[in-house]
Simulated assay, not measured.
Amino acid sequence: MSTETLDLEEQVVLLLAQVREELLNRLRYSSVSHDNNLYTQLSEHPEDDWVAYLREKAGPSYKELVDKLERLEAAQCQFDLGLFGFCSDCEEPIEDELLEHDVTTQRCKKCESLVKAREQ
């Protein structure tokens, strides 16, 4: 594994910890009692189950953070499987500048442009 890849993996691990901490802090210090209860309940769930649990229980104000958590967990899983940095569609390497910009990038430039064209 290259030094650059290790740096990206370390970045994913760090960002994952930061997002989890941010989620916990927002839930814990929320003025909404439901959020406070979610904070307590999350401590009883393995971190790997947080996304599914929060999708079901957390309000829309947490969607962006939960989405980010899900993308980071996917990137971590790709490292574990040795698939990090490969396009989820064509399986070709993702351009370095895309990964440096966002370590959760799932597609190469070509496939991302095809997806965006289909969405229009």
Rank of each mutant, 00 (worst) to 15 (best):
L24W: 04
D35M: 01
S61D: 13
N37K: 11
V66S: 01
Q76A: 13
H101P: 04
L38R: 03
E21W: 08
E22I: 05
R20Q: 15
Y53D: 03
L23F: 01
Y53H: 00
T104A: 15
K57Q: 14
L14S: 10
L24Q: 14
D96C: 04
E92F: 03
L15D: 15
N25C: 10
A58P: 02
G59C: 09
R107T: 10
W50G: 00
C90W: 03
L42P: 11
L16P: 07
Q120F: 05
Q18D: 15
L27A: 01
S33R: 08
Q41R: 14
C87G: 11
L15E: 15
V51I: 00
P60G: 09
L23V: 04
A117S: 08
Q41K: 11
V66T: 07
R118H: 07
V66Q: 01
L81K: 13
Q18I: 12
K109Q: 15
L72R: 02
L8M: 14
T3L: 15
E22M: 05
L54P: 01
D7Y: 12
C77P: 05
N36E: 06
V19A: 06
E22A: 09
K63D: 06
C87D: 01
Q106D: 13
L81R: 13
E64Q: 12
S113Q: 14
D49P: 04
H34W: 01
V32I: 08
L69D: 04
I94D: 03
Q76L: 12
E73H: 02
A75Q: 00
E91V: 05
K110I: 11
L54M: 05
E4K: 07
V51G: 03
R118I: 05
H34E: 13
D49N: 09
S88F: 00
R26C: 10
F79I: 02
P46L: 05
A75D: 09
T104Q: 05
E64C: 06
G59P: 05
